[in-house]
Design a protein around this nucleic acid. Structure first.
Length: 198
DNA sequence: AGATGGATTTTC
DNA sequence: AAAATCCATCTC
């Protein structure tokens, strides 16, 4: 059952926690790629110095100021893309970064897109990896997550206990650096590996 | 197991 | 100039 707009137009921390255990679906050339979300991060409003919207409303961040339930996709480090689900209502800029999924459908297709990774845990265990595996790039920026290209479903899966931690790679964010706004499934191998000092 | 550096483009 | 990353390649 597909999540509707009312799911996304709620407080971002609630959405981030509730997205863990849901299933991200990508329709591509008549094929269905799917993975259970095992790791998310919340980026909450213009006060949050880790949130891109803290720099104000620009061409890049405009999508986050709109209604919830749309995709915010951006390129990072010149190589990779990151996928976010915009949250909250019109005028409040926030989003949830989808950091990792456990592949469920189209696994071999995704493995190929990931340079034939031989280990399943390495296919989508990071925000850049999952975009590579599921063929998500900037052409999906602004995509309606209640449509039939990219969406998230409730499948009543039981991922197990959820842990929180500080967000990854936001050392520059001052007092917001240590907010426990990362949510992930404990001991799930498809969660991203976090290097020391990041 | 942990640290370091390189690839490369978008952003303001 | 720095970035919501990933990977290869060192070192212990």
């Amino acid at each position: 059952m597909r999540l509707d707009r009312s799911f996304y137009e709620r407080p971002t921390l609630d959405v981030a926690r509730d997205l863990v255990g849901k299933v991200l679906i990508r329709r591509l050339q008549g094929r269905r790629l799917a993975g259970m979300i095992v790791e998310t991060e919340a980026y909450v409003g213009s006060e949050d110095l880790a949130c891109h919207a803290s720099k104000g409303k620009t061409a890049r961040t405009a999508i986050m100021f709109g209604r919830g339930g749309f995709a915010y996709v951006y390129m990072i480090y010149g190589f990779y893309y990151c996928l976010n689900a915009v949250t909250e209502t019109e005028g409040y800029p926030a989003a949830v970064l989808i950091r990792a999924v456990e592949p469920l459908e189209g696994v071999e297709f995704m493995r190929k897109r990931r340079n034939n990774s031989n280990s399943d845990w390495n296919i989508a265990s990071g925000p850049g990896k999952l975009c590579m595996a599921m063929s998500i790039d900037k052409s999906l920026n602004g995509e309606d997550l209640t449509g039939n290209v990219l969406w998230i479903e409730e499948q009543n899966l039981h991922p197990g206990p959820i842990t929180t931690s500080p967000r990854v790679g936001v050392h520059y964010a001052g007092e917001y650096r240590d907010k426990p706004w990362r949510f992930y499934v404990s001991r799930n191998p498809h969660v991203s590996r976090v290097p020391n000092g990041r």
